[in-house]
C-alpha cells in the first residue's frame, strides 16, 4: 500500500507486478492457513481415533467413527427429534422469560435505589454455578416442568440485565437532547435513537445468554427431567453406554453452536446492515 502511493504514477508496469506479487503472497498465505487448519482437524480427529482402543479402553473412549455410527442408529430409532424438541422448547420458554425479566431489571437499575437493590442479585446471578440452581430447583420442584425453567431464568437473567443497563447508561444524551430541542416526538425519538442504540447491547446479551441457557438446560435435565437431551445423557451414562452418551451431547452441541454462531449471527448482521454503510 505504502509503496503504491510512494511510486510515481508513470511507473505503471512495476507497480502492477508488485501488486500481483502481493496478491500471490496473500493467496499463498490463505492456502497455507487452510492447509494448516485441515492438518489440525486431521491431527485431533486422528488422535481421538487413535486414543480410543489403544491409549484407553474402547468402551471408555469411543472414537469419532463410533460416534457417527451411533448417531445413525439413534436417528434410525427415532428418538432424536423428540428429545431435541423437548429441550428446545424448554430453552425457548425459559430464555424468553429470562429475557423479559433481565431487560426489566436492567431498565429498573437506572434508578439509584433499585440499582443498589438489584446489584447483588445480578452479581449472584452471574457468579453462581448453574449446577447449584439445577440442584435447588430439582429438590424443590422435583420433575415438574417449572424446575428447569426457573433454573434457566436464574442463570441467564443477569447477563441480559447487565447488558441492558450498560446500554442505557451509554445512551447518546446529546442526540436525545438535540432531538428534544428540535421538537421530535417521544415515539419517534425512541424509535430512531434509543432503540437503535440499545439493539447491539441487547443482541450481545441474547448471544451470551443463549450460550449459557442451553448448557444449563441440559444440566437441569440431567437431574430433574424425564425427557430431553439431558435425560438421555443421564440414561446413557447410568447404563455405561459411552458411545450413546457422547453422541447425544455432541449432536446437541453441534446443533446449539449452529444456532448460536450461524443463525443468531445472520440475524444480527441483517439487523445491523445499516451500520456497515456508516462505517465505510
Amino acid at each position: 500500500m505504502a509503496t503504491a502511493v510512494a511510486s510515481p504514477p508513470t511507473s505503471a508496469p512495476p507497480r502492477t507486478s508488485e501488486e500481483e506479487r502481493v496478491r500471490a503472497a496473500r493467496r499463498r498465505d490463505r492456502i497455507n492457513a487452510v492447509a494448516w487448519r485441515l492438518a489440525g482437524y486431521a491431527f485431533f480427529l486422528g488422535l481421538w481415533e487413535f486414543a480410543s482402543g489403544r491409549l484407553m479402553d474402547e468402551r471408555l473412549l469411543p472414537g469419532p467413527v463410533d460416534v457417527l455410527r451411533t448417531f445413525g442408529e439413534l436417528w434410525a430409532s427415532g428418538k432424536v427429534p423428540g428429545a431435541f424438541a423437548d429441550t428446545l422448547t424448554r430453552i425457548g420458554i425459559g430464555f424468553a422469560i429470562a429475557f423479559v425479566v433481565g431487560a426489566a431489571i436492567g431498565i429498573l437499575m437506572q434508578n439509584r435505589l433499585l440499582n443498589g437493590f438489584f446489584r447483588d442479585a445480578v452479581t449472584i446471578g452471574v457468579t453462581t454455578p448453574g449446577l447449584i440452581w439445577a440442584l435447588i430447583t430439582a429438590i424443590i420442584f422435583g420433575n415438574r416442568p417449572w424446575g428447569p425453567l426457573i433454573a434457566i431464568v436464574l442463570t441467564t437473567f443477569a447477563l441480559i440485565s447487565v447488558n441492558v443497563a450498560e446500554g442505557i447508561k451509554a445512551l447518546p444524551k446529546d442526540l436525545i437532547d438535540m432531538a428534544k430541542s428540535f421538537g421530535v416526538g417521544v415515539v419517534r425519538r425512541n424509535r430512531q435513537i434509543v432503540i437503535p442504540h440499545l439493539a447491539p447491547y441487547i443482541f450481545t446479551g441474547v448471544r451470551f445468554g443463549f450460550s449459557i441457557a442451553w448448557k444449563v438446560t441440559v444440566l437441569t435435565e440431567v437431574f430433574s427431567s424425564s425427557s430431553g437431551i439431558g435425560f438421555e445423557m443421564r440414561t446413557a451414562s447410568q447404563l455405561f453406554r459411552l458411545p450413546e452418551f457422547l453422541t447425544w451431547i455432541l449432536a446437541f452441541y453441534v446443533f446449539a453452536l449452529l444456532l448460536e454462531k450461524v443463525v443468531l449471527e445472520v440475524i444480527e448482521r441483517r439487523f445491523f446492515a445499516w451500520r456497515d454503510t456508516i462505517k465505510s
Binding site: 439509584r112 435505589l113 433499585l114 440499582n115 443498589g116 438489584f118 446489584r119 442479585a121
Partner: peptide, 13 residues
C-alpha cells in the same frame, strides 16, 4: 438516604 443505593443494597436481603 432512603433513595440512595446503599438503602437498596440493604433492602435486598
Amino acid at each position: 438516604v432512603l433513595r440512595s443505593s446503599l438503602a437498596g443494597r440493604i433492602a435486598f436481603p
